[in-house]
Design a protein around this nucleic acid. Structure first.
Lengths: 145, 145
DNA sequence: ATAGCTGCAAAGTGTTTGCATTTTG
DNA sequence: CAAAATGCAAACACTTTGCAGCTAT
């Protein structure tokens, strides 16, 4: 899924918001990155492409775009990391400690687990995102620690 | 489990570290709290009991005590929250959005879930702590949203 | 006596806010 | 043209650091 095949611009304009160079840059950077990026990293990446852009603008737009549902923040390591929301299914992230790859697991992998928590603790989970650390198959095969 | 039944003091002295009033205060506050506390909250609670204690000292000791394995930090909401480590089993936290209660789920509740992730994605989870939001049985019974 | 620890003040991050100016629709 | 968004600088909250003096052992 790319934001190029997704007309988020008109969606914004329709609601009276504006499509600025800065907003497009942020969407571009998020879309081009293979992994989720923190606000800080986004400030940097955006500035690489367009030196004039201010951090405050990036922060403001990350909130704005999240509120509008165009991107999605995930808490991790004490920071918010952003990814395109678009028509993507909600999902979980499995991050490899070896190579850093991020595997996306569909939301339904947690069904049985959440059912168990409900059964054993009467607790009904509402968290819609999990971020787990571990080792991917490739790293384990190649003798990762 | 209480730190009063646990002689962490001698463990420290044995290794050449000192048992100070500040360190004991921090351990007391952590132990007395029904929920995990953030560094910030700990600074405040400690200061309530002993007005002179400096934030820097609290921060330094939270790192120190974590390194020594006396307390355990858990990331949550962009901050570290601390709880007694001691001889406790590793476990997961289920936090109720309604009443804020924290249910501790033993580590083994994730066995089947982690096995599924390994089977489907070849991914071997190493994260040893999960923090999930949701609704507890009591809140759901009393018509929590 | 002497590491080890504390308090203080200053600096460092990462993020937010107010306001004058610019830009988009 | 008017509303919306930006840049800038200052404020913010939280955390870390250097150093002189204090204190547990």
């Amino acid at each position: 899924m790319s934001h190029h095949t997704w007309n988020y611009q008109d969606a914004l304009r329709r609601d009276g918001y504006r499509v600025t160079r800065q907003r497009e840059l942020i969407m571009d950077v998020i879309c081009d990155s293979p992994t989720r990026l923190s606000a800080r990293q986004l400030c940097e990446s955006v500035r690489e492409r367009a030196p004039g852009v201010n951090d405050a603008t990036v922060y403001r737009n990350l909130h704005f775009l999240s509120e509008r549902g165009l991107i999605r923040p995930h808490e991790h390591d004490g920071h918010a990391f952003y990814e395109l929301a678009g028509p993507l299914e909600p999902h979980h992230h499995l991050t490899c400690r070896g190579c850093g790859i991020e595997i996306e697991a569909p939301h339904d992998v947690t069904h049985a687990f959440y059912a168990l928590l409900e059964e054993r603790f009467g607790f009904c989970v509402t968290s819609d995102h999990l971020s787990l650390q571990g080792w991917c198959a490739a790293c384990r095969a190649s003798g990762g620690t």
